[in-house]
Design a protein around this nucleic acid. Structure first.
Lengths: 188, 188
DNA sequence: GCGCGCTCTTGACAAAAATCAAGAAGTCAC
DNA sequence: GTGACTTCTTGATTTTTGTCAAGAGCGCGC
């Protein structure tokens, strides 16, 4: 099984023989550091899977860039509202480092639905899972301090703090770079 | 068309003849003020639709109750993770006022999938929509001050501020009741 | 090596929000 | 009406976080 197959199997639980068919639709795409997978305002007609490298998802809000998520290996990159509802994308996806993606376009993505039994149900389950993750994230903002949010992310993924400039992690955590810097100092 | 049919049609876009079949599965349930539709820890084996009244969705975190959402007419009440993945519920759903719900249980809900063409796809679209709403909510916490979040909610739904004790709205906005009180005073 | 970005840290200060405490106002049962 | 309860407001204060500014450290191209 390729890596992509493993992840798709893990996320969607499709039978092995369907897997092979699905992954043939994905084409490798390389991004150079700084390149965009998708810019806000465009139509997100492609779904990407991060094979290597780091992709930042951000939006401009009141003259500031707000980083919503940082995707590493194993994450999908897509503006869901745009991909599903064919609206202009709200998020920018920019490669932080050189990155390798596997990418599928709308048309081929829809073919999966015709090809794989129960695909829409599996999709539903996957998106429901994503929804519950976001619910938890909202909860962290309702119930935790900046310090607690930092501690949680650090416990969840130490690696990230070596790979990504801290200012972007600060944004993703909903605090300023200065605050993050001070919190890190406190926790030696 | 009943109200329930209208809402389901609006959310899912099912054909009219399927609608009638779907709504027959929903049974009216009355909740008295203070009663629970679902308690954290239980299995959420029912999906509810609010016909009238107000239902609060909250969780206990560090000795404090955190209100995640307040549902009025037209909202669904369900712990998605529990309903879909059969895990114990994380959220409590309590009636704030006397409330009328239409409720469907797991078993009948699954029958819809067998009965209505493309149902899983419509479900997917609905949940995707919910996901994007949550994305926006996360963004408000990453990019807006407490005051801006209050202003936004107030602009979106003034009514709520007459119907619900402010302390719970404060919690839902991620601030203390005192802070909300002061922000409201500022905006005369 | 040198200069240039970029990133991070630090300090001083300001602003925002939380905490603690008290009391006012409204609602409800009796 | 009275008392108990809940909710909301207000003030005083502390804590947390943001802002502004300066400088240190680092990597990279030339």
């Amino acid at each position: 099984m390729t890596e992509l197959e493993k992840y798709i199997h893990g996320y969607f639980g499709v039978p092995t023989d369907d897997l092979a068919k699905i992954v043939t639709f994905f084409k490798p795409v390389s991004l150079k550091k700084g390149e965009y997978f998708l810019k806000a305002g465009q139509l997100s007609d492609r779904l990407g899977f991060v094979q290597s490298g780091i992709v930042r998802e951000y939006v401009e809000a009141n003259d500031k860039e707000v980083t919503k998520w940082i995707s590493t290996k194993g994450y999908f990159v897509v503006d869901l509202a745009s991909f599903v509802f064919h609206q202009p994308a709200r998020w920018n996806f920019q490669a932080f480092t050189d990155a390798e993606l596997y990418v599928i376009d709308q048309k081929n993505y829809q073919r999966i639905g015709q090809m794989v039994d129960r695909w829409h149900e599996l999709e539903k389950l996957f998106i429901a899972k994503c929804f519950t993750v976001l619910e938890e994230r909202v909860l962290t903002h309702l119930s935790m301090t900046a310090e607690e949010r930092y501690q949680q992310l650090f416990a969840f993924n130490k690696e990230l703090f070596n790979q990504v400039p801290l200012q972007y992690l600060a944004s993703m955590l909903g605090m300023t770079p200065e605050t993050l810097s001070r919190l890190r100092k406190k926790s030696f």
